[in-house]
Simulated scan of single mutants.
Amino acid sequence: MTEFRTARLTRLSLTGFRNYTTLTLPLTAKLVAFVGPNGAGKTNILEAISFLTAGRGLRRAALADVARKDGDGSWSVAATVLLDGMETKIGTGLAAGTPGRKVRIDGEDVRGSESLLDYVRVLWLVPSMDGLFTGPASDRRRFLDRLTLAIDPAHGRRVGDFENALRQRNRLLDQGGSDAFLTALELQVAELGTAVSIARSETVGLLTQMIADQAAQDLPFPHAAVSLEGAFEAETIGLSASDREDAYRQMLKDGRARDRAAGRTLNGPHLSDLKVQHAAKSMPAAQSSTGEQKALLIGLILAHAELTAKVSGMTPVLLLDEIAAHLDPNRRAALFGKLDTLGGQVFMTGTDEALFEALPGDAEVFEIKDNGSRLLRGVTAP
């Protein structure tokens, strides 16, 4: 994948973030591991990196909750990104007493975190996602939306606008709004909802093709079959975008009485689900073993990383929290080998340095302890 642009963090600085008063990490390697005891703050470093892209970070935490507990309520994450041979300083954070996080690029304030996608794309796999296939559909929609955002920077704002329009419609139904107001609002809901559904469907289609291409690579991870399912998709399958909008508007109009009684909108892309199957066994992922579900997730993330590079032209930064703990040595070695060939930068965590013995020789391993770091392995190690 070396034909793609590669964004690499060469320096990371945290201030007032979670358990860190300050932390600065000079970075030189493509593959980086953070090791140390539970509670040392390894995942906090990954979360900090996840704020260097659009969205709410890998924990989806409230911004105020990210600030150090004994601090003044502010926090910041800054990084130097090397892209196309040029270094760019990007940063984000929260100023005490102000709403919303601020974003800066080379010292200049910019509007919206989507601007960060021009410099770095960040994907992650964390233990909280282990129950993705057995959990509620809302978790899988959010997962799919994040996958879509990595290849379509406008998707996040589109989803937010759609959800806001739905809330306004529900409120208007509850308050007995006029038909004229409802019609105007439903036009907006239909346009945004259709665009959201089409973007998700395109991501699923592209991901399906990438998984098929990956099947020839003989990786020790099962391949997933993915599809987008829901009443809205079933009722609008084969329709053009404009016809889908018309059909959705009619659904909304016809369902006003039912939705008013329910207190919510009962049909639309906000209820769709990402269905995942273990392809070789033709079995729903939710019915697979815990180990198979983890392996399916890893395979999906690897396929999506390749898809992101192919569509955006930029290899993503991967954050893999506790990725090696539940893999046997052969799968760990295969995973590290695949990550190395992806071309992008990868940050991993684990409790034991031995879990990362199979990393390539030019990888870096940092020990995280006592709110600080120590380089155990790497080109600048003593």
Rank of each mutant, 00 (worst) to 15 (best):
M1P: 07
E3G: 00
F4H: 15
F4N: 09
L14Y: 02
T15R: 15
G16W: 04
N19E: 02
L23D: 04
L23M: 10
T24I: 07
L25M: 13
P26W: 14
A33G: 14
F34V: 04
P37I: 00
P37D: 06
P37A: 13
G41C: 04
N44L: 06
S50F: 05
L52H: 07
A61H: 14
L63C: 10
L63I: 11
R68A: 07
G71C: 10
G71E: 10
G73H: 04
S76R: 13
L83A: 11
G85K: 11
E87A: 14
K89S: 00
L94T: 05
A96I: 06
G97H: 06
G97C: 01
R104H: 04
I105G: 06
G107M: 06
V110K: 10
G112K: 05
D118T: 02
W124L: 03
F133Q: 03
G135F: 00
A137T: 06
L144N: 08
D145N: 12
D145Y: 05
L147S: 08
A150D: 03
I151K: 00
D152N: 08
A165P: 13
Q168M: 11
R169E: 08
N170P: 00
Q175D: 15
G176F: 12
G177S: 13
D179G: 10
L182K: 11
T183K: 08
A184H: 07
L185H: 09
L185F: 01
L185G: 01
E186P: 14
V189C: 15
L192H: 02
L192D: 10
I211C: 02
A215D: 04
L219Q: 03
P222R: 06
P222Q: 06
P222K: 02
H223P: 02
A224H: 06
E229K: 14
G230P: 05
I237M: 05
S240W: 08
A241M: 12
A241R: 15
S242L: 12
D243F: 05
E245F: 05
M251T: 02
K253S: 12
R264T: 15
L266W: 04
G268H: 09
S272D: 15
D273F: 13
L274A: 07
Q277H: 13
S282V: 06
M283W: 09
P284R: 07
A286E: 15
A286G: 14
G291N: 14
Q293W: 09
L297K: 11
G299A: 04
I301H: 02
V311H: 01
S312P: 00
G313H: 09
L319N: 02
A325I: 01
L327Y: 11
D328T: 08
N330Y: 07
K338N: 02
L339E: 12
L339H: 11
L342D: 06
F347V: 03
G350L: 06
A354L: 11
P360T: 12
D362R: 03
D362T: 02
N371L: 12
N371S: 15
